[in-house]
Amino acid sequence: MLIHRPDGDVATPPAQRAPSPAVLTGRRIGILDNRKPNADILLEHLADRLSERTGATVVHTATKNAAIPCEDQVLGLLAEEVDVILTGTAD
């Protein structure tokens, strides 16, 4: 018996992640806190550990609502001021 696949083709996602830098030394780390409980603690701790291990600098923290896309204004600011962003999804 032949049946059709139910899933269909995949379109090109509207945005692609930029490649991560091979080396973090000298880079600027930004934190995008999704405001879920304890997200700030986890992300700040992670950023501090990365900074200690690599020589990167934590320069900026911004926040967003976890359920909707980040505001363009916030993304624009981060794009100007940081090289990599630490963030979280969901809870």
């Binding site: 139910p6 269909g8 995949v10 379109a11």
Partner: peptide
């Protein structure tokens, strides 16, 4: 997933 929902794809899932 950014899957494309065509009428054919909808028909397939409707049948299922």
């Amino acid at each position: 997933r950014f899957g494309e929902a065509t009428r054919r794809t909808l028909a397939i899932n409707a049948i299922m």
